[in-house]
Amino acid sequence: MSEDAALRVRETVDAVYRSDSRRVLATLIRLLGDFDLAEEALHDAFRAAVEQWPRDGVPANPRAWLISAGRFKAIDGLRRRARLDALDDGAEPVEPATEDAWDDEGVEDDRLRLIFTCCHPALPPEAQVALTLREVCGLTTEEIARAFLSAAPTLAQRIVRAKAKIRDARIPYQVPSVADLPDRLDSVLRVVYLVFNEGYSASSGTSLTRHDLSGEAIRLGRLLIELVPEPEAVGLLALMLLQESRRTARSSPAGELVLLADQDRSLWNRDQIAEGLALVERALSSRQFGPTRSRRRSRRCTPRRPTPLPRTGPRSSDFTTCWHAPIRRPWSS
């Protein structure tokens, strides 16, 4: 294979890593029943891809290939370790998974399992956030530590403890039952909103990394409504998009906060506003009301208006300005 072709395969592997590594991980966790083992298997699988794809060609279904390779490597490793440990140790044979264990639908279920497990209310809230960013979003421990302005070892410790609790207290790797879903979804939405706020309310000095957090939260929000199209999840994504739409207008070049009434509205992101408003309509049409939808309803008046209204009440923040302003239709009005 020419160097060009090898480079192209390498780029394919990189692209598959970006688009699919979290999906592969989620399925490997289910198949192997252990977070650390699955992460190791994920890296082994991509290492194998880098070696084999240039030689054998890119497989028709790269994701299935990676899951299969990862699982094989992990089981192989377990067997070798078991042999080393002691022959009479009674190492449990690993159940062979059925071939359809990694069809597309199953893989999507696994992503949802991963989110619900990382956001399990039995884990401390700060661990839920860290674990979600690490396992679901694929951020490194260093990236998470930087974003939350905490020390990497502290964060690593938090993640290690959370994984130990998942294993020892046997927090299940499953989507909660319909009866438990509202409670459990709340906990997931809270984590996503926490991640968003951490990025949104940061001062501009550290805006680069913080911006990434808001982006991750919106990505998570999109993933959620794709997997659980509950009105509350739709409402949260709308809320995040509408807030995010004003990001660039929110601070001056010197990094000072610009209040809503003084913002340069040409800086507002129209695409995000349009998407956010469409989601608002979708969530409201469900006629069910929860906390994020009411919170968002109180704010949705803000990004619609191209020019500021005359001030009607005390101005202390974006939120109160918005609260005092009457609701009107968008640009057309």
Binding site: A122, A169, R170, I171, P172, P176
Partner: peptide, 8 residues
């Protein structure tokens, strides 16, 4: 119990 959710 099967897992923590069942125990809860």
């Amino acid at each position: 119990a099967r897992d923590l959710d069942e125990a809860i």
